[in-house]
Design a protein around this nucleic acid. Structure first.
Lengths: 191, 191
DNA sequence: CCGTTAAACTGAGGGTGGCTCGAGTACTTA
DNA sequence: TAAGTACTCGAGCCACCCTCAGTTTAACGG
């Protein structure tokens, strides 16, 4: 029979997650893992016992938060296509901007199946895919726009927010979405 | 009177620049400076004697290259506004993508007067400003678009190219520029 | 309550990299 | 060729990543 998990193990796991969350918010996802272990009053080895590498720790910190994000994304299915697209991109950009450096991990995670963030990335891309294909059907968005375009836009937006003002990032994202829409200058979608 | 600079100093300087260029191309601007010193057959201290920090070294590597870039940018003054804008952004994105990590240094350099890259950043932004204001006058680009928008777009494009395919980055940039243009959906320019 | 057992914890240690500074070297100049 | 100094060297300190052999401690069965 399998034993019940040890109480100290669970306690350390939770402490590590809590401190990692705080530290990543303050210093970004590139923060010192030894520092996180220190703050959690735990030896480095313990941290590595629970989370084999930085990505795993970031992934764990994000897990709950991501659930809420994905739920919100799916709730957008009812909205008008353009609204849904704008809000989804905005949601993800704000989410990613909570932790400096996350945009990079996400952008790299979509192509790396070994990444602990891969599942989250594909989930994000899938939701974007649904929204964008609905928008194309509705004739709102150009038919040649892909899910990859939307995923990339989200990452670029999040990165921009780390290196410029939130307003500047929002402007750029907004312009880009304008560019994705059907207009007199762009190919018309099938009705 | 000031002496002629020592021959060995100049030799080391040049070797360091050459190796730094090669290494930054191969490994990005985050590469080990100790490794660069080793490759240049020089002690670390010598590297730091010539270039006090990583940004200074990157800036020096970029200097000549930047001149060519700026010249090309100014040569675009004759082109049609939209063409000039697209080509300028493309030029800078390709330039920045030569060295992984450069997009970040540039994005941060525009706000940091102490950065050795600050001058290059403002120069880039200035050229963008000229092109965009000409395009606005011509009624091609929305009147609310700023030089900062263009600078940010260039950085975001370069970053995207580091984390996705060149094609994907080009698509996104292209869509964004579409969004900057005057169309039936956006505010009309004067004229 | 107390062994037994395995899961979990610990932290020294080996590796890499950034950067400094005092001692030594070698180039220029007169 | 000697003086003077610009330049070079690299050991050394610090921070970080990650591992693993030895130790602790919680869970379980009697």
């Amino acid at each position: 029979m399998s034993r019940r998990p040890r109480a100290d193990a669970r306690r350390n796991h939770d402490r590590l997650l809590a401190e990692a969350d705080a530290v990543f918010r303050e210093q970004g996802t590139g923060a010192s893992l030894e520092g996180i272990a220190r703050r959690a009053d735990v030896a480095v080895g313990t941290l590595y016992g629970h989370f084999p590498n930085r990505r795993a720790l970031v992934g764990a910190v994000l897990r709950e938060r991501n659930e809420a994000l994905f739920d919100a994304g799916e709730a957008l299915a009812g909205k008008a296509p353009e609204e849904a697209l704008r809000q989804w991109v905005d949601l993800v950009v704000s989410h990613a901007a909570t932790y400096r450096g996350l945009a990079e991990l996400l952008a790299d995670g979509i192509d790396d199946e070994a990444s602990e963030l891969h599942a989250s990335c594909t989930r994000m891309a899938d939701i974007g895919e649904q929204i964008v294909s609905r928008a194309i059907e509705a004739g709102t968005v150009r038919p040649d726009v892909t899910a990859a375009d939307v995923f990339t836009l989200m990452n670029a937006g999040a990165w921009t927010r780390e290196h410029a003002s939130a307003e500047q990032a929002a402007r750029l994202v907004s312009y880009t979405i304008d560019g994705l829409l059907v207009s007199d200058r762009s190919p018309q979608g099938a009705v």
